[in-house]
Nucleic acid binder design. Sequence first.
DNA 1: TGCTGATGGTTACAATTGAAACTATCCCCC
DNA 2: GGGGGATAGTTTCAATTGTAACCATCAGCA
Lengths: 167, 167
Amino acid sequence: MTTRIANNRKRPAGEQLRLEHFVPYRLAVLSNVVSTSIASAYEREFGLTMPQWRVLAVLARYPSSSAVEVGERSAMDKVAVSRAVQSLVDAGRVVRTFDAGDRRRLVLNLSPAGRAVYTRVAPLALRYERQLLAALSPAERRTLDRLIERLLDRARALAGNGTWKRR
Amino acid sequence: MTTRIANNRKRPAGEQLRLEHFVPYRLAVLSNVVSTSIASAYEREFGLTMPQWRVLAVLARYPSSSAVEVGERSAMDKVAVSRAVQSLVDAGRVVRTFDAGDRRRLVLNLSPAGRAVYTRVAPLALRYERQLLAALSPAERRTLDRLIERLLDRARALAGNGTWKRR
DNA sequence: TGCTGATGGTTACAATTGAAACTATCCCCC
DNA sequence: GGGGGATAGTTTCAATTGTAACCATCAGCA
């Protein structure tokens, strides 16, 4: 029951797979710790969920976006955006108006209250990021950026063409 | 409505926060693409969910673990482990026996069928990882390992002490 | 005009997940 | 030896999420 494929040097099938060294696993754990850490602070201090926060961030930077545009800029599907926007509208933090030219389209913007929340949340987010990245040297931070970028490109390519799946 | 705290050079509050450059966001996106990509292949080819796969991987490496031990080694809480183990037992891939000395404790092991699945899944997982990391040079791969390690340590420390949250 | 297919967004329902309560066993110590 | 508290694991219920179906509008075109 060992694979001695030429892929790597003489190791039984499971031997080299240790979860704690498996990059996809490590990425998941890291991302999870970071996200829940931030999310709990958002929730506690501003009553914001992660999707809501993402929508705020997008709208702050790209006012008058449509829902799909928000989705593209925040890596959320349109259902998630719809729900987050709905709750933000309910909370008076986002205003939703119909596009004049295309009445399917909604134009989203921060309300003054939404903007106020954003200007308080953003520094908190940046502070967390700064403290996280303090574990790295400036050079390492740049490297990290590059590595994430390249891995993301590659992961998307693999997910897209699906070739890696075939055995 | 701008924060002019001495934290960084003259920038209005939201200005420097662009989601697409925000490391926690990028990590979340990357991890998500990678995980769903792998998960869909596991599901399709072996009927395995991600938690089930993690349990298999742990048990392959550390036979006769208890549920909490599996949890510690796979970053899952005990409820998640319990559910995954239950389904694996139902599928005849894991056997669960009571510990002789401590009858609260369950001893978990792969069944022959479970082992068979594992020896087929593991190479697939490693193959994906190899293809993902092919985007990086060997030196970069080592760097990535180190960076993840350090970030994880830091993230856990920040999550633990909670100081970053105070404004 | 009036189809047909595409697009923007919401709704409905099922599956997953998380948090808290619960059961059973164990360990310590009086 | 019998509480009282801790530990292992499961169950339950609510909240979150994902998928598919859905409604409305639009754009192209016969």
